[in-house]
Amino acid sequence: MIGIKRSHELILLLFFIGLIIIMSLLAPSFLTINNLLSVTQQMSEFGILALGVTVIIITSGIDLSVGSIAGLTTIVIAMSYGWSGSLVAAILLGILAGALCGAFNGVLIAKIGVPPMLVTLGTMTFFNGIALVLSKGNAISDFPEEFYFAGQGYLFGNIPVQTVIFLVLAILTSLLLSKTPWGRRVYAVGNNSVAAVFSGVQVDKVLLYVYIFAGIMAAISGWIISSRVSTARADLGAVYLMQSIAATVLGGTNIAGGSGTIFGTVIGVSVFAVLANGLNLIGVSPFAQNLLMGLALIVVLLISNMSIIKRKITIFIKLNFN
């Protein structure tokens, strides 16, 4: 199993390096510090979303509601800033809202045992509905200047703030997964939840925290998106849902659970970001990005499933020509 996983990460890494080489050959401006920094800026928002999604997929779950949570957060931040006047309080309330959304998912999944795909299919619509109702379907853009710092500001001259936030969160998540008891339990639950119960692991609690964690990540992502586009709107974040799942899977997290790393996810996210940025620099239509992202996902998985495909072809030939 470990062998397979490693081989997937290797394939992905080679793919990524190849991609960078091609991009820098085709677009001379690609391999400049400033451009690379802007790549990291572009990947931060859905990268943060993907951090939460990764943890969930490791437990063999899935969360279709993270995009809606991000959208809801933007509304909560905007509205609570409207009546409190305090930006810090508003952002904290937004993140709290994300955590509550995650907890709502988590309770239904962990305590009642509803399959994650079904719960989050419902809450995706539900959370989005709440955001629409709160905002009456409008976009809100009454923000103070300071609010734009997270999404548009720079540290140390030219390092985008959101890149820093993403890196910090990625390292934090990685540490949580690999170093803490909770992280160990996350993998154990994803591998064999029954055996985890029989080892005294409180599976329901682990899962509850996993979904809360993803809710918080989605909220932070929503905050940054909203800050970057200077607007709060219910559907902000929705576009990143499928991308974040795709990047996670591309990064080697097994959709069946039990394996996956934050490092892989960051690479997966980077592949998407480099594709988008590079194609843009080369002057390829932005419409090609979707296509190439989809292709990247399928091609990498095809390569890492090559042994299965070869086996099937062999059997096919055996059956038909022997």
């Binding site: 899977v249 069946a256 979707n290 296509l291 989809g294 292709l295 996902l297 399928i298 998985l301 499933n305």
Partner: peptide
Amino acid sequence: AEIPAIVVTLGTMNI
């Protein structure tokens, strides 16, 4: 290729 349906269709959705 035995890739899970959700993953394949996620990819082809974009393609």
